[in-house]
Amino acid sequence: MNIFRLTGDLSHLAAIIILLLKIWKSRSCAGISGKSQVLFALVFTTRYLDLLTSFISLYNTTMKVIYIGCSYATVYLIYMKLKATYDGNHDTFRVEFLIVPVGGLAFLVNHDFSPLEILWTFSIYLESVAILPQLFMISKTGEAETITTHYLFFLGLYRALYLINWIWRFYFEGFFDMIAIVAGVVQTILYCDFFYLYVTKVLKGKKLSLPA
């Protein structure tokens, strides 16, 4: 555990909590892509199956349970409890175009051809692109609520901090995981355009809106 890993995890936690609280407090999931949230629930489910097979640390187990729990709570709010506020007309990204290639790649490029390891690999690849339906939705509507942009910022920041964590671990522990690193680079690159808008607009007190 190093400071980049820890702040990365806390950033991830902040993102998840911000989104859940935003939806809960406003009683609305307008502007939120339910598809991205389902993909994240799928990511956590397939990655954290090792909760059932191996114990790493109390920290590890606790965070995994919180991530999964919050993720399913978010999906429940969007598709069940607050379904009337869900903006499905703008959430039109075709997720099969992500899941099918990602599933194929997980079978072809993995550390070990075992069910748990293939599912872990699938979750790493899927996480790297799971935000695309949300970004697609924002590009379609041309705007995002400020609180939604805070969510996206912390979610993007988390993987960027993990990149520094991986550099740290390579230098000080001689450890590297090529699958996680490459997927993490892809994931972080997808947020770059958003990071630019966040810094130049949202942090200056303006709403995030895209030119028509």
Partner: peptide, 10 residues
């Protein structure tokens, strides 16, 4: 990544 102890990172 490929060790038997599972994945430490989240």
């Amino acid at each position: 990544g490929s060790d038997d102890d599972g994945h430490d990172e989240l």
